[in-house]
Simulated scan of single mutants.
Amino acid sequence: MDSLNKFKIPERIEGLGEFAYNLWWSWHPVARNLFKKIDRSLWKSTEHNPVALLNEIPYHNLVACAQDIEYLRKYDACLEAYKEGLSFQGTWFDKNYHEHLDKLTVYFSLEFALHNSLPLYAGGLGVLAGDYCKEVSDLGIPLIGVGFMYPQGYFHQFISPDGWQNEIYDQLNFKNVAVSRVLAADGKLLTVAVPLDSISIYVSAWKV
């Protein structure tokens, strides 16, 4: 994988960079609070987006966190919970279907509402898919979701002075969202040819 960011983070809390790129943080308050405590106002202005926050935060703020005993206690607890959550050990699926841990379920959806910082959804379909992904993660079910990487996300509506509804489309800034480019074995950007009648469409892959 190749993320678009190389954060400058003190070694003691360097796991924040990995947290930011794994949306596990979005439904675990202990992880969200770590980012919020770095800079509450910036956390709010970035709309609770840890990738954007780490891109903008002054380094000395992170140094202060790395020297704060209470912050480090919460960081270590979060790191332990994070590693446990990724291990599959002791999960519902591990306890009941351990022999199937090597099998993978693939979930196809046009939308995935995982967090508002990654606007790959517009409504109920995405919310349902996102909830499924979060639940199977907590249950320890091996699953991968496959969908589209929309470059604009959803639009924002407003009413013009003359009473007409208008839309604003925000272009997705890939440097400020939790996505990584998938690379081939040779280190180059992975592309897959999808045949369509007499032509082929080439698709690049991104990992959320």
Rank of each mutant, 00 (worst) to 15 (best):
D2S: 14
S3A: 14
F7C: 08
K8H: 06
K8P: 00
I9F: 08
I9R: 12
P10L: 08
R12T: 09
R12L: 03
E14T: 06
L16A: 01
F19H: 05
A20L: 07
L23K: 11
L23C: 13
L23A: 08
P29H: 13
A31W: 11
R32V: 06
N33S: 12
L34K: 15
K37H: 08
I38F: 10
D39Q: 06
D39L: 06
R40K: 11
L42W: 13
K44D: 07
K44F: 01
T46D: 08
E47T: 10
H48G: 03
N49E: 09
A52I: 06
N55P: 07
I57P: 09
Y59G: 05
H60W: 14
L62F: 14
A64G: 02
A64K: 13
C65H: 02
C65M: 15
K74F: 04
K74T: 07
D76C: 10
D76Q: 14
D76H: 15
C78R: 12
E80I: 14
A81P: 01
K83H: 14
L86A: 12
L86C: 09
W92M: 05
F93L: 03
K95E: 05
L101S: 08
L101H: 12
T105L: 13
V106P: 01
V106R: 11
V106N: 10
F108D: 05
E111N: 07
A113T: 04
L114A: 11
L114F: 04
H115Q: 10
L118N: 07
L120W: 00
L120Q: 13
Y121M: 07
G123V: 01
G124I: 00
G124F: 02
G126Q: 00
G126F: 00
V127H: 00
L128M: 11
G130A: 13
G130E: 06
G130R: 05
D131Y: 04
C133K: 11
K134L: 10
V136H: 13
S137F: 15
L139E: 09
I141D: 12
I141G: 12
I144Y: 11
G145E: 10
V146A: 12
G147R: 09
M149D: 03
P151L: 00
P151H: 00
Q152P: 01
H156W: 01
F158M: 07
I159H: 04
I159E: 08
S160F: 03
D162T: 05
D162P: 00
D162F: 01
Q165V: 02
N166E: 05
I168C: 05
Q171H: 02
L172E: 03
N173P: 08
F174Y: 12
F174L: 14
K175E: 10
V177E: 08
A178M: 03
V179H: 03
S180I: 06
S180W: 06
R181Q: 10
A184V: 01
D186M: 02
G187P: 06
K188T: 09
L190D: 01
L190Y: 12
A193L: 01
I199R: 13
S200I: 03
S200K: 09
W206C: 07
K207C: 04
K207T: 05
